[in-house]
Each structure stands twice: as structure tokens, then as C-alpha cells.
């Protein structure tokens, strides 16, 4: 841009300007253009390289990525004051903006120090000192990303990610659901709650799978969908208003389920019509493996 600005006057003034001045302007244009190109190259490279790989997590209190890249001077003081050597400065070639601090949870997770020394150490405000309660940190969000290999999803009781969570029972809970495979066991599914998860990565670090973890901390932007704002969640609205917004539902009796709680449509063996004498026309298939049929139906 500058090159054009400078070259044009040279052309116009060609007739009147002394050749020395013309050459000077041309030189300036060349120099400015060269410098501009160099800076532009740096800028473009910076823009292109500013995408953070999904496994690189910023320290607690880090400003949103765009602001962070304007604020962090890459001094490493946060790295120096992290007692667990969690944080490191990106080196050229690490795919993280050169010199900026990050950690990889599977490698060394954040131990959620109560005094948050990394934030205290940061002189620039790239790590925001308004974060004083580490449980309010939002470094990322854990996601149980591989439901095919997570042992709890296979019906076992591993629970390790749940046990190690510093915010256990809030950030991560075990949700009990029926195990359709055995049909008579429960599965306890590790379930992360974004409201409380700090993204420390202790769960990812602890996951017992041999290589990659089944639960991973991801940048919140990757881990979370956007909320469907137009959809009112009746239960939340009811809680907020203290009552249902559309009034209580009329409870009509359902034939055959009179003795049950309203809405419970489950059918057990006892609910089936009993035909004691006659052998059934066909035998219901037994579940593979010879398990008992509990008769549970969703």
C-alpha cells in the first residue's frame, strides 16, 4: 500500500523534481515496500498460526484466546511459578503461538492450586487476576469423547476419572442407566457438567486406557454446542417460576395402569395377563448368555 502512495508522486513530479529527489523517493518506496511485505508476512503467519490445537490448554484465568494473544508477552513467569511443571512455553514448531504458555492434560494436568500462583505471577493480565477461586477456572471442558472404549460405558466399574476429579460430584457425576447388554445391571456413566468443570484435565490424565484417554479436556468452544435459546426448558422454567407455566396437567387414568404412579408405563412380569395352565404358543427368546429376563422395558 505504502509503495503505491510513494511511487505515484514520483511519477507526477518527474518533470519538475530533481533526479536526486526522485531517486530518493523511489528508494524510500522500495524500502517501505520491503519492510511492509516483511511485516505483512509476519502478520499473516501469526494469523494463520493462531489456531490452537485441541489438546493445548491455556493456564487458569487466561483471557479469551484473541485477547490473550494481545496480552501475553511470552515471559514464562507463569511457567516458572507453576509448582507442578504443568505449564510450558510453546517452542517454534509446537503448533501453539510461539512462546505462549499452555499445557497438555494427558501429559501433566493442572493441580488446581488454591493460591493459583500462575495467575499471581503474570505481570500483564494475560492471566486475569479476578480469578481468585480456582474452582471457578474455565481452562477447558472435559468431554467423555470415546464411549466405545470407556470402561464404564462397557458396563464395568472403573470410575477413575470420577474419583480423581477435584470437583467430584459437581463437575463430574456417575449417571446410572440400565445396561441393555446384560439387561439386569446398571451402567454408571461418567458425565461432565460444564457449570463446574474447570478443565484441569486430572480426569484425562488419570483415564486408565493405555494410550489415548477416553475423556479429554477440550477448549470450551470445541467441547460445547451453542444453546438453543428459543427452546424453553420446561423444568428450568418451572423451577424459576415456582410452578408450571402452562398450569398443571390433567391426569387422565390409563387403562390397565391404574395402580401405578402417573406417567409410569413400565410393564413388569406381574403386570402381564397371567395364563397359568396353558403353555405359551411360543417361548420368548432368552437373552444371549442365559441371563434372567428381568422383564424391564423402557
Amino acid at each position: 500500500m505504502t509503495m503505491n502512495d510513494k511511487v505515484q508522486p514520483t511519477g507526477h513530479a518527474a518533470a519538475s523534481a530533481p533526479p536526486a529527489r526522485r531517486r530518493f523517493l523511489k528508494d524510500v518506496a522500495g524500502v517501505a515496500g520491503g519492510a511492509g511485505l516483511l511485516a505483512l508476512g509476519a502478520g499473516l503467519y501469526a494469523k494463520q498460526a493462531s489456531a490452537l490445537p485441541a489438546t493445548a490448554i491455556r493456564p487458569p484465568g487466561a483471557l479469551p484466546e484473541d485477547d490473550f494473544l494481545a496480552a501475553c508477552v511470552r515471559c514464562g513467569l507463569c511457567v516458572r511459578d507453576c509448582p507442578y511443571k504443568t505449564l510450558k512455553l510453546a517452542e517454534l514448531g509446537d503448533r501453539v503461538a510461539t512462546g505462549t504458555p499452555y499445557f497438555e492434560a494427558r501429559d501433566i494436568p493442572c493441580e488446581m492450586c488454591e493460591d493459583i500462583p500462575c495467575v499471581v505471577a503474570c505481570p500483564t493480565g494475560a492471566l486475569d487476576r479476578t480469578l481468585v477461586d480456582i474452582t471457578k477456572a474455565k481452562m477447558g471442558l472435559a468431554v467423555l469423547i470415546d464411549q466405545e472404549n470407556c470402561l464404564n460405558f462397557l458396563g464395568l466399574r472403573c470410575d477413575v476419572c470420577y474419583r480423581v476429579c477435584p470437583v467430584i460430584d459437581q463437575a463430574i457425576t456417575l449417571e446410572r442407566i440400565h445396561n441393555p447388554r446384560s439387561d439386569r445391571h446398571a451402567m454408571l456413566l461418567p458425565t461432565v457438567h460444564s457449570e463446574h468443570c474447570t478443565g484441569c484435565g486430572k480426569c484425562e490424565k488419570a483415564c486408565v486406557l493405555p494410550g489415548e484417554s477416553a475423556i479429554k479436556v477440550l477448549p470450551i468452544k470445541l467441547a460445547q454446542g451453542s444453546k438453543a435459546e428459543h427452546y424453553l426448558r420446561s423444568w428450568e422454567e418451572k423451577e424459576a417460576a415456582g410452578r408450571s407455566l402452562i398450569g398443571d396437567q390433567v391426569e387422565l387414568p390409563v387403562r390397565g395402569l391404574e395402580g401405578k404412579a402417573y406417567g409410569d408405563t413400565r410393564v413388569g412380569p406381574a403386570d402381564l395377563p397371567q395364563v397359568p395352565d396353558q403353555a405359551p404358543a411360543y417361548a420368548p427368546a432368552k437373552p444371549a448368555g442365559g441371563g434372567l429376563d428381568s422383564g424391564w422395558k423402557p
Binding site: A39, A42, A46, A49, L69, V73
Partner: peptide, 23 residues
């Protein structure tokens, strides 16, 4: 270098980041 210095600041303003620090 003086031009480059100027552009380093321009690029910082344009990208809203310490772009020069990448390189």
C-alpha cells in the same frame, strides 16, 4: 528497520495481537 518498526505496530493493531512476537 524504522519502516519495519512502524509496520510491526500497524500489524499489531490490525491483527489485535502481538504478531511480531511469532517471529
Amino acid at each position: 528497520r524504522y519502516w519495519l518498526l512502524g509496520f510491526v505496530l500497524v500489524i499489531a493493531a490490525a491483527t489485535g495481537s502481538l504478531a511480531w512476537e511469532w517471529v
